[in-house]
Design a protein around this nucleic acid. Structure first.
Lengths: 166, 166
DNA sequence: GAGGGTAGGTTGATGCGTCAACCCGGGCGG
DNA sequence: CCGCCCGGGTTGACGCATCAACCTACCCTC
């Protein structure tokens, strides 16, 4: 039907690059996530939480700190922490008499210690080493620029209540 | 706890670039998806199907062709097409006496015609123009390299039954 | 000290993505 | 003809992500 092809809102090169990016992004993520899941029984969300907890001084954080760190919505945090608690990866410790702290359990610590190096090696093999030092830095910078643009776009062209979570 | 920080499986620069990439990827996607959803009531999955259908000669494709085009699992295709049919964006036409063809409805066509230019403009603003011609091409090339590496990795280090969908 | 606002968190509904299991018809070896 | 596999497709169950609504302790102001 050529709805898009006949009115190229992105020109050919732009389309090509954009679609390559989309494909890479999806393929790489799917691949990494699948491995994490099959080898360690962890989802990428589990991994993200565990990384953040394990990087903290004490292995304990408030839920909303995790929210800031991960940029997730609070309800997502809440839901996911519940699931992780059921599986014994974390535990909620009521110390503040109000807001529980999220504590990394022994099991959670084992899990992250086991899978992090494997995961990192895979990231290195499939991304870091493929791109090489220079393109990595370039990509990092590019990412910052895009992030800035999105932030700007959020601030200027969205009514505040549309901006969402953060 | 410094589990990760003390044993840097990626060095500092690598981490920084990788995490910038992750953040950009998520932020950009969330932003685009949210707009698509709020302004047109379309999910990114809807959009992807509609783009593919609308780019075909006839506006009709077999489900498995859509599967190839999108790289989705067959069950995902099936589920999603059902949902889209319920909403009147597509329709299943039984022409082959066995496998139905997926047909773009009038409504589906309207939807994609309405949202594609807006979406493309946003992609341009937040991505294409931010990066500029050169970095775009560089990124496109980089994406191809990463894709190749993942393909390679799938072929070599995964047992065939783990490789998944396609 | 009563009312309102707000930040942190929970809950439920709904849509999406994946996995495993199944269905079904066509091709093929015996 | 029977049994088998295989490709295309559907289904159900489950975990995940988002949205909207709600709860609640604290703070502020009057």
């Amino acid at each position: 039907m050529g709805v898009v092809a006949n009115e190229p809102w992105l020109d050919e090169d732009e389309q090509k690059a954009w679609r390559s990016y989309l494909l890479m992004r999806k393929t790489l993520e799917t691949h990494l996530v699948r491995h994490l899941q099959r080898e360690f029984g962890l989802s990428d969300s589990d991994f993200e939480i565990l990384v953040n907890l394990s990087e903290s001084e004490t292995g304990r954080m408030r839920a909303f700190e995790l929210g800031e760190a991960t940029q997730w919505e609070k309800s997502r945090i809440s839901h996911h922490l519940s699931r992780m608690e059921k599986r014994g990866l974390i535990r909620k410790a009521a110390c503040d008499a109000r807001y529980p702290e999220i504590v990394l359990t022994e099991q959670g610590l084992e899990a992250i210690k086991a899978c992090a190096p494997v995961h990192a090696a895979r990231v290195r093999e499939l991304f870091v080493d493929v791109l090489g030092k220079e393109r990595m830095t370039a990509l990092g910078d590019a990412a910052e620029d895009v992030l800035a643009a999105v932030d700007e776009h959020q601030r200027t062209s969205c009514p505040p209540e549309v901006r969402g979570c953060g």
